[in-house]
């Protein structure tokens, strides 16, 4: 039994179907049809205390829905969830005391209050002792430089500052488990790095179990040994990061803008997309170097501009489909 256990978890939403036209609108007053949308389907995993797990997948894959069920604000349609021995939606308030949550897209702080007052309010909310509060505030302030914006109302903080405030707020009550939903979204390189360092420190020094959803592969590479990959509500992969990286991390995409539209014949690379003069070529960097590929292309056509891309999670997932990888 892990600190988090998820067994055959499913969540369906019912969405009212919009009927077309005026007549449809009138009809829908009396009779409504619903479409069932499955956000999470038969998901199972177990996470041990102290682990840091990347929970990833493309937009709409069901990541946030899973997190919401783990925090107790959504009720599962089927299956079981236990977090620290509790069933989250049944004992929501009790569960709230053992978890910390950060949503990158949404602040949990009170908009109108100066940042420091939000912290003081949380101190009361979680009945945090003076000593514990002091200790945590000192640590967080030192790493996250919260003192730069103590007196600023939350609504006036920059995104980077707000995220720093939010993650500090989520850890004030020393939760055993931390849920991070896209904690680095929209942050600049420096802020991202600071955030990652902080998360890592909290995991290593305090032994906090972390579940992290992200679109940024660098977050995962930097922080997680294990990742759970989901798409269309189903677990596609659960395991070490290295396996995925070995398999897919070597692929690169070369994007070239040619002077005029030309049929390219290249060896060791695959034309995956073509829009007029712009071509996308995927290649494996162990089989061919970028330089060799560019040389091949430049023989056939004049290159006006080019760029190299590392694969993003979305494209890794797409690739997994194409190549039919189903590593258990």
């Amino acid at each position: 039994m892990g600190i988090i256990d998820v067994n055959h978890l499913s969540k369906q939403y019912f969405i009212a179907k919009r009927q077309e036209g005026m007549w449809g609108a009138v009809r829908s007053l009396f009779h409504r049809e619903y479409i069932t949308k499955t956000a999470v389907e038969d998901v199972s995993f177990s996470i041990e205390a102290g682990e840091m797990v990347g929970y990833i997948g493309p937009n709409g894959a069901g990541k946030s829905t899973t997190i919401k069920m783990l925090t107790g604000i959504l009720v599962p349609s089927a299956g079981d969830v236990t977090v620290g021995g509790l069933v989250p939606y049944r004992e929501r308030q009790k569960n709230a005391r053992q978890i910390g949550v950060v949503f990158g897209q949404r602040s949990q702080l009170w908009w109108d209050l100066p940042t420091i007052e939000s912290f003081e309010l949380l101190k009361q909310v979680y009945a945090i002792s003076d000593q514990q509060y002091r200790k945590n505030m000192d640590t967080f302030t030192e790493i996250l430089r919260l003192d730069e914006f103590y007196q600023t109302p939350v609504r006036q903080l920059s995104l980077g500052q707000r995220m720093r405030a939010d993650i500090a707020a989520s850890l004030l009550h020393d939760p055993a488990i931390l849920f991070l939903d896209e904690p680095t979204i929209g942050l600049d390189v420096v802020a991202k790095e600071r955030m990652r360092t902080f998360i890592q420190e909290m995991n290593q020094e305090r032994g906090i179990t972390v579940i992290l959803t992200t679109h940024d592969m660098a977050d995962i590479e930097r922080l997680c040994k294990r990742m759970i990959l989901i798409d269309q509500g189903r677990v596609m992969y659960d395991g070490g990061l290295s396996k995925i990286r070995d398999r897919f991390g070597k692929s690169r995409i070369l994007i070239v803008d040619l002077e005029k539209d030309t049929q390219l014949q290249v060896q060791g690379a695959e034309l995956i997309r073509s829009e007029g003069n712009r071509k996308w070529l995927r290649f494996n960097r162990e089989e061919i170097t970028a330089a060799q590929l560019i040389q091949q292309v430049s023989i056939q056509a004049d290159i006006q501009d080019l760029s190299l891309e590392e694969p993003e999670i979305d494209s890794i997932i797409r690739q997994m489909y194409e190549e039919g990888l189903s590593v258990g």
Binding site: I73, Q93, K94, V101, V125, Y126
Partner: peptide, 11 residues
Amino acid sequence: GDIAMEMMRPY
């Protein structure tokens, strides 16, 4: 959707 934040609190 801010109600979610309220529901995640121990009150």
